[in-house]
Design a protein around this nucleic acid. Structure first.
Length: 445
RNA sequence: UCCUCAGUAGCUCAACGGUAGAGCAUCCGGCUGUUAACCGGAGGGUUGUAAGUUCGAAUCUUACCUGAGGAGCCA
């Protein structure tokens, strides 16, 4: 694009904002009956002789523009899918237009004519769509998912901010394994090595002792070669942690937190859920209190259902599906065997073979969305666990310190944003719930 | 890491041992209310790569590459 054209566009855009009301599709109802200007991209177009239809998207929605003026036809004919444009005209309600409003164009200007757009209005395979993820984000389904995701994040933060939790973010670079179980991404750190965090958990315990109730929210990394619809190598997790709290407090918080998020999405994201064809009745059926089930009772249920599981083993995803299918609301499974859980989980004083921990399984087979529990608060027990897990003692000195200086019972959990988003959107695969997913075989775009 | 499946036009697929085809996208033409619009026409191919079997391979065999689904691990 040459300089003259660019200057013209800038002049045109600035004129638009002073002379005519610039409107987004989201707010088009407010412009009904008046002239308005809309900036966007061609979503699709159709023509029928002397009347032409332009479907425009602007990021906030999609809308139909009708073109009948002969002097606009030439510009219309040049427009290709995803060409950028500025159009103005009179807005009126019309049930035949997606969104309920349409614009009768009085002027139409192409900013840039797009080349052959790879994503056509027909079906595509996910491999191709992922290769074009930067463009795929423009389509309706992705639009809806990203807006539900943003709503979930906003709900999480509002809930915690309004309930006395202080946002204190934890580092991405860490000197050693947080939990020692999963594989970490190793990276060069000047003369040294560092690892990308797999959880803010341990640092959260330090900030909880400093600030009472805290949460962190950020990306986490797992270098596991997982290859399923529930795994990413980079995903976002929100982790609240409370001082002077036990497992029951963590479970209550998880219940209130999830319930709040579900209600918020139902309240503010109906159009998006409609685009996704989400069965919202299933979300409306979620009620408090959530069912609670001990691990031991869960194993008994699974064995009656014919699943092959021995007491002491962790649940596989078919097990989680069977358990969650029994309830309309998320189910909280607590007190797993200590042996299958992280080293910092506090043993149950009633039965030291199990830990004071909880996994929250989402309904409809979406699996674990929350994991957490109460942490060990005794320094000697913690040190023996660190040794038993063959973790480097030196790296955990600060962590043990937290038990030497005013130790208190404390508990918290982590929720995976992508899993929660997949569940509330009712979509098959977690990779569509983040703008640029990172999986074992994909780091492009 | 293991198991299963799949790679054919830009995309989605068909052809399953005998001349590689359709829809969408693109280009040209038609239509005054279209809704993934429709109708007519055109261009578009080293059938993932390499070797083998055969008179003849997209099709059968082997290896490799790439991807998808599942398991394990986890949020």
């Amino acid at each position: 694009m040459d300089c003259d054209a660019l200057c013209h566009i800038i002049r045109r855009l600035s004129m638009g904002s002073t002379i005519m009301m610039r409107t987004t599709i989201e707010r088009m109802a407010g412009a009904a009956g008046r002239e308005a200007e809309l900036c966007g991209w061609v979503y699709n177009k159709r023509s029928s002789g002397k009347i032409r239809f332009l479907i425009v998207r602007d990021g906030t929605g999609i809308m139909q523009v009708v073109i009948t003026k002969p002097e606009l036809m030439e510009t219309f004919d040049r427009l290709t899918q995803e060409s950028s444009l500025v159009v103005s005209g009179k807005v009126r309600a019309d049930s035949r237009s997606p969104g309920g409003f349409e614009m009768e164009a009085t002027s139409l200007e192409a900013l840039q004519i797009a080349g052959d757009y790879p994503i056509t209005p027909k079906e595509h395979g996910t491999a191709f769509l992922m290769e074009n993820r930067h463009l795929w984000l423009r389509s309706q389904k992705q639009w809806a998912i990203m807006r539900v995701r943003a709503e979930i994040i906003r709900a999480c933060r509002d809930f915690l901010d309004d309930n006395g939790f202080l946002l204190v973010d934890t580092p991405i670079f860490t000197p050693a394994a947080c939990e020692g179980t999963t594989t970490l991404f190793e990276t060069a750190y000047f003369e040294d090595k560092a690892y990308l965090t797999q959880s803010g958990q341990l640092y959260n315990e330090a900030t909880a002792a400093a600030f009472g109730k805290v949460y962190c929210f950020g990306p986490t990394f797992r270098a596991e070669k997982s290859k399923t619809r529930r795994h990413l190598t980079e995903f976002w997790m929100i982790e609240p942690e409370m001082s002077f709290a036990g497992l029951d407090d963590a479970m209550q918080l998880a219940e209130d937190f999830l319930y709040f998020i579900v209600q918020r999405v139902l309240e503010n994201r109906q159009p998006e859920l409609a685009v996704l064809q989400r069965d919202v009745e299933k979300l409306r059926r979620i009620t408090r209190p959530f069912p609670r089930l001990s691990y031991t009772d869960a194993v008994e249920i699974l064995r009656k259902e014919g699943n092959e599981i021995e007491w002491g083993g962790d649940f596989g995803s078919p097990d989680e599906t069977v358990l969650s299918a029994r309830f309309d609301s998320p189910v909280m499974v607590h007190r797993y065997p200590s042996a299958v859980k992280a080293f910092y989980m506090k043993p149950d004083p009633q039965n030291p073979d199990v830990a004071l921990c909880v996994d929250v399984l989402a309904p409809e087979g979406y699996g674990e969305v929350i994991g957490g529990g109460q942490r060990i608060d005794d320094s000697e027990l913690l040190r023996s666990r660190i040794a038993a897990h063959q973790l480097p003692e030196e790296s955990f000195r600060w962590y043990v310190d937290l038990r030497r200086f005013g130790s208190v019972p404390h508990a918290g959990f982590g929720m995976g944003i992508e899993r929660a988003t997949a569940w509330l959107c009712g979509i098959e695969h977690i990779r569509e719930t983040i703008a640029f997913p990172r999986t074992i075989y994909r780091i492009y775009p």
